[in-house]
Design a protein around this nucleic acid. Structure first.
Lengths: 205, 205
DNA sequence: GTCTATAGATTGATAGAC
DNA sequence: GTCTATCAATCTATAGAC
């Protein structure tokens, strides 16, 4: 083929980086996956990091599309938030094997203080902003909506990390159920704001 | 030196693996850190994986000692659970830079289906069992205590992952506060078990 | 635009002198 | 027990033919 070789490289690199990490993924691996020669890479990219940059850009686009899809799927914010949590079940098998694509890559690049780590952090920012919008649509103020967004994002990351080592679908299902119940309890109308009232959470399940 | 060279190797490898990951850590790095020659490693270890195995064993010992220390620090289960959560603040700077030592290594080895991944999972099992004991001491049954233990473990992992990319101490402090409030709400006496009662959680903060 | 050939460095690991 | 010297493989990257 001719034109979309670059795109094939990015797609193969995306998969390999997710499945085995960035440091472990070599040009030889990608070349085998795409079916091209090693020396062919430097016509499309100047360095390995440049491939990573393209992979991150592709993931940012895919994430934006996914978030837009969730908005089309449900017209009320609670339903949209449920889509986010449901993701843990939809991709349960992949998460159990390779963890969260965002969290694991961010962790690897963060350790190395890699110059592209901030780019991966933009993926987190994308989810954070979208979740914050949903909580604001539920009636929360910007600051509280942001805190709730980060809390839900934190839960998804924690579940993904443990899912990879526990290999226990029951754990994931229970935490998903708990997160959904937590969402339902976050609407200001469902949780009347009595200032300084004793907090009262039961979870999980 | 003579006798404790092996111990020095393990200590240096432990630090480097935490700071930059296992795949990225080479014999050259460890040799520089310890101040020995590269060829000297194979008198103490047969392979790189054998060093990793020794590092994991050392971490298991250190974790057991840490858990025992928390038991000595507080004689009631709630105080001990607070020690666990407090860990996120005590090691906040390191977690912000390199993530959780357990979670990040488990993630890296899990991706590769590395033969030593189950050994790292033992670290999770250590925390899980200890946390379950504390929740049982609070009066919870074994199954529910285990679920609560995993939930708290999940939170610690989620906070660690996001802390590394957000670099926002406010987020960590808020989630720590929320986790502490969650712990206080988990005592059966604090949360009377009305079967099928509507769950009511507010968090974070 | 894709290939082969190769450079130059680094990897994990071995052999053998001291 | 530690060293130097070295091996074979692999790494990212380059040069140049087609």
């Amino acid at each position: 083929m001719h034109a979309d070789t670059r795109q094939q490289i990015v797609a193969a690199a995306d998969t390999l980086i997710y499945e085995q990490g960035y440091a472990t993924t070599s040009f030889a691996h990608i070349a085998d996956a795409v079916g091209i020669s090693r020396g062919n890479f430097w016509h499309h990219f100047k360095s390995k990091d440049e491939i990573l940059d393209a992979v991150i850009a592709a993931r940012l686009d895919a994430t934006r599309a996914m978030l837009a899809g969730w908005e089309a799927c449900a017209d009320e914010p609670r339903g949209r938030l449920r889509c986010f949590v449901q993701m843990l079940l939809d991709h349960g098998e992949a998460i159990g094997r390779h963890g969260c694509p965002v969290g694991t890559l961010a962790g690897e690049l963060g350790k190395l203080a890699h110059p592209l780590h901030p780019r991966v952090a933009e993926l987190f920012a994308l989810f954070r902003g979208w979740l914050r919008q949903q909580f604001q649509a539920l009636g929360h103020g910007p600051a509280r909506a942001d805190a709730l967004a980060l809390h839900l994002l934190m839960r998804s990351q924690g579940v993904a990390v443990l899912a990879q080592s526990l290999k226990d679908p029951v754990f994931v299902r229970r935490e998903v159920r708990d997160a959904l119940a937590w969402i339902d309890a976050q609407a200001p109308e469902a949780a009347p704001r009595r200032r300084r009232a004793p907090r009262y959470h039961r979870s999980p399940r």
